[in-house]
Each structure stands twice: as structure tokens, then as C-alpha cells.
Write a protein that binds this DNA or RNA. Sequence first.
DNA 1: TCTATTCATCGTAATATTGCAATAAGCTAA
DNA 2: TTAGCTTATTGCAATATTACGATGAATAGA
Lengths: 110, 110
Amino acid sequence: MGLTKTEKFTEEQNHISTIAKAFAHPARVAILQHLFKIDTCFCGDLVTEIGLAQPTISQHLKELKQQGLIQGTIEGTSVCYCINKENWNAMKGKLSLFLNQDLTLSMNCC
Amino acid sequence: MGLTKTEKFTEEQNHISTIAKAFAHPARVAILQHLFKIDTCFCGDLVTEIGLAQPTISQHLKELKQQGLIQGTIEGTSVCYCINKENWNAMKGKLSLFLNQDLTLSMNCC
DNA sequence: TCTATTCATCGTAATATTGCAATAAGCTAA
DNA sequence: TTAGCTTATTGCAATATTACGATGAATAGA
């Protein structure tokens, strides 16, 4: 009932779904795109850029940080965020294995 | 609230998050992996393979079908599901654009 | 020290998602 | 037709997610 039955699935399946959850909200997609474009930016910039309330952005940043996709360092009173490129590439590799499963076996069957 | 503010984001950002939602549950990952492995299978096979109740599997299949990632054709009393390879590749292309954003600009900044 | 600024956390309200029992719908075969 | 099988739908309960006001923590500058 509303509780995902994690124990029924393999570690890989749970991992892939966890990765996907990071991208499963447009605000987090927007944050990542902005960080790629700008290379580095403060939390406050994201608030004005995206137009959600500051606690909401902070919450999305926390999720991305927990997955290791971004990192933040304190600079005076503000926090500078950027993509963690090593972890991003690792994530990409993991996800690619799933996305690039062999499609050549046959034509659509049905 | 709890209501995602879709209007605040670009069409692309909303699209990517919608794609990601398809993979954001291990049961749907497991269904897709099984369909890749077996190439085609009946809904009932997935129920025994994955071990969730039949209505639950049916619901996950519905979501994957709505995204166009899988398709099902009725065969007698059962339904044969398989990957929609055209749509799968289209999805992969869209997601790759997001995943492969340029990382070469600089080292980690912070 | 006091104030202003920036960001994180807490608490809460609302919507979304997950899971399943019960049931409906559709087909096959007797 | 009836019985049996398979899958979809409905309805409900429980957990998860999203959003934001209020507040707290930390720093910089007056």
C-alpha cells in the first residue's frame, strides 16, 4: 500500500529506479541543465532562474546531492553548486547498460 | 500542495521528467528487463516472475504502455507484451541528449 | 553587537504513487 | 449457454512526493 516492495527486486533494478527518480521532476532536470550551462552557480540564482520558492529548490538540491550528482561548497553566506562529474559519468554508465539492452533479437512481436 | 508546477518548466524538461518516471519504479524496470530478455511474454508470466499482485502489474504495464515503451496485443484470453522498439529508441535519443551534456568545460568547481 | 543576507530545516497541507481485494470484461471451450 | 481462464478496472488504504511559510543557523559587514 503505497510502499514500494524493494525486497522483491534486484539491487540493479532498485538502483536504476533510484537514478531515474532524480530526473523524475522537471525542477531537478532544470537545475541540472542550468548547472551544465552555467557550470557553477549559487542556490539563490536557481531560485530566481526556476521560480519556485527557496525551500523547494533547497529540497530538490538536497535530493540531487544525496545521489551524488551535484556537490555544494559554502562560500561566505552562499553555497556554490556544481555537477559532480565523476558521479555523473558513473551514473550515465549504469543507466546506459539499461537503456542499451539488445534490441536486435527480432522485430516487434505484436 | 504536492502539485508539480508543470507550467514553470520547458517542454523538454517536462518531457525528460516524464520519461524518467517510467523507470522510477523497480517493478517497471524489472518488467522492461524481462521483456528484453524474453523478447515477448504474457501478462501472467510477469505476475509470477515479479511477484506482485496481478492488478499491480497491470497498472505498471498501463503506465509503460501510455508512454509507448511497450505494446500489447490480445491473443485469445491473454495479452502478449513486448518492447516498442521504435519508441524505445526515440526515448533513448531524447534522454541521451540530456545525459550527454558537455562535461568538458572545466573541472569540478567546488 | 546588531543587522542583513543566504541557505537549510521544520512543520504542514495537498496531490501523487503504490498495492491489492473485489469485480468487471472478454475470450475459449465444453 | 455456462464455466473457466486471463487481464483490466474500480475503490480504497497507506506511503511518498511536492510546495511553501516560518524559523533556525551561519556568515559578512556596519
